[in-house]
Design a binder for these strands. Structure first.
Length: 463
RNA sequence: GGCGGCGUGGCCGAGUGGUUAGGCAGGGGCCUGCAAAGCCCCGUACUCCGGUUCGAAUCCGGACGCCGCCUCCA
């Protein structure tokens, strides 16, 4: 049984699936108006891990993540840069998927785009107008939040208390400051779609209701996103579903923020608030490991010291792969527990990890278990129990693979000169010519290699 | 004003009412020709003050500090 924190209830509870063995997940994706930032990286990693884990456990997962390709910020950038909205969207969506690939985030099964669902949104909005839960103003159509009795469920407060603090701004034709735009009338030179209530474009909150229900159907299992979407975005999705008399998500799950804590550091050393930038300066797996090592609902601090910490921990994992020559797992392929043999220590490890993961995705404790097992495998090997050591190491690798983290033994293209140095050094060592061997090692190090002496001779790898 | 979260050893970061989290860094040792990798050992922790308890970092109350949401945001 998988247990997961449900934001709507404010507690960890059993994941109740619409149909046994199948998980339908909708994750609120990015607006493609800019380069992805660290927060995008975190939420995609968190839900990628969840998806992979569910799959690993034998569940059939339908994973949907939308792309918002119509939005004020997109229009603003297009106008600022004197190009079309489409050019902006095309560029930044490509950047998005490029970053996702580098992060090792598996592609969703469906990636609906808002602009492909405008007709359906218009239809929904029209039905709201008919039913009088929405109203027309001079600049568009607004949803009347007071028409939904339990509005505020996800925010954890009733409508009245939300209203007190809400900052009133802009359009005072709104009946309540909390009412939100379903449709924005087009201004000159803005993208527009025809609608009976005036040409324009959809507001942000409508696309996810329409697309999630279209692709996953009513009463789908899991609706995920960043904590900041809890209110008002998800609240507003819920409100629309309720108003449309549709049963919406069974569970709501939200991941915590990314903090860039040490501002001084980030300013001087590496101010990588851009995910793209981070991925250029570090092994992308380090970010995944950093994310895995804190609970998904906690905030994480991403800064040079925490990244460096993760990189060194990664070294330790990779050295296991080197020692046992483990194959590369994860990546675009989702691992299945059933494709591995679990016995003895491996089975116990698998069960401990599963217990932790199934308890609200306790990745930090699961990772701790895997590090423990890593040590055990090394000890076994040191003591000469090669076969069982290898089995355990393979299980560690498989379980990291289940979390989307590949252990890399590090295969490298070795040029001829380097190869000759390695052979010369081996010869020197056989001849017990240590001075020569050390000189050759220095030379290899200068050429950027890390040199280790293994049972079979000189081993080199890149740092 | 309303709602919510957090405060763990040098750093990151889990967790349970009573027995080692884990990683990184540091110290010592084993192994090694020397290293590296690996292994072993070491150190210290639970913001503060009360309370409940045989026993609390873990429950309750209070204080202090930090943060978030209520507005576009992953």
């Amino acid at each position: 049984m998988i247990r997961l924190y449900d934001t709507a209830r404010g507690e960890v509870r059993d994941l109740s699936l619409r149909s046994p063995g199948r998980v339908s997940m909708y994750v609120c994706g990015p607006t493609v108006d800019n380069l992805p930032h660290l927060g995008h990286g975190r939420f995609t990693l968190v839900w990628d891990v969840a998806r992979r884990w569910f799959t690993f456990q034998g569940l059939s997962v339908h994973y949907v993540m939308n792309i918002t390709d119509v939005d004020d910020k997109i229009i603003a950038r297009a106008s600022r840069e004197s190009r079309s909205e489409n050019a902006v969207v095309t560029q930044y969506e490509a950047e998005w998927w490029g970053a996702m690939d580098r992060l090792g985030v598996a592609r969703p099964d469906d990636t609906p785009h808002a602009t492909h669902y405008v007709d359906e949104m218009v239809e929904l909005i029209a039905s709201f107008l008919e039913r009088d839960v929405a109203y027309v103003t001079s600049d568009g159509v607004y949803f009347d939040v007071s028409s939904v009795p339990d509005y505020g469920l996800l925010a954890g407060q009733p409508l009245e208390s939300l209203r007190v603090g809400a900052r009133v701004e802009g359009n005072d034709e709104k009946r309540s400051p909390l009412d939100f735009a379903l449709w924005k009338n087009a201004k000159p030179d803005e993208p527009r779609w025809p609608a009976p209530f005036g040409d324009g474009r959809p507001g942000w909150h409508t696309e996810c209701v329409v697309m999630s229900l279209d692709l996953l159907g009513e009463s789908f299992d899991l609706h995920c996103g960043g904590l900041d979407l809890k209110f008002p975005h998800h609240e507003n999705e819920r409100a629309q579903a309720e108003a449309a008399h549709k049963t919406f998500a069974r569970h709501w799950a939200h991941n915590g923020w990314v903090m860039v804590g040490d501002e001084k550091m980030s300013k001087s050393l590496g101010n990588f608030t851009s995910l793209t930038e981070l991925l250029e300066m570090t092994d992308p797996r380090a970010y995944r490991l950093l994310v895995l090592r804190s609970h998904y609902r906690s905030p994480i601090d991403v800064k040079p010291s925490t990244i460096a910490d993760a990189e060194r921990a990664l070294d330790r994992l990779d050295s296991l792969a080197r020692r046992f020559g483990l194959p590369v797992l994860a990546g675009e392929n989702l691992e299945l527990a059933s494709s591995h043999a679990w016995e003895d220590e491996s089975l116990e490890l698998f069960e401990r990890v599963a217990t932790l993961m199934n308890d609200d995705l306790n990745t930090p404790s699961a990772v701790a278990e895997l590090f423990d097992a890593l040590s055990s495998a090394n000890v076994m090997a040191d003591e000469g129990h090669e076969a069982s050591a290898r089995r355990l190491a393979q299980s560690v690798s498989a379980l990291f693979g289940a979390l989307g983290l590949s252990l890399l033994a590090g295969s490298h293209v070795v040029d001829e000169v380097t190869q000759r140095l390695v052979l010369q050094r081996d010869a020197a060592r056989v001849a017990r010519n240590w001075a020569e061997a050390d000189l050759l090692r220095d030379e290899l190090v200068e050429r950027g290699w890390i040199v280790e002496d293994g049972a079979s001779g000189t081993l080199i790898r890149r740092p």
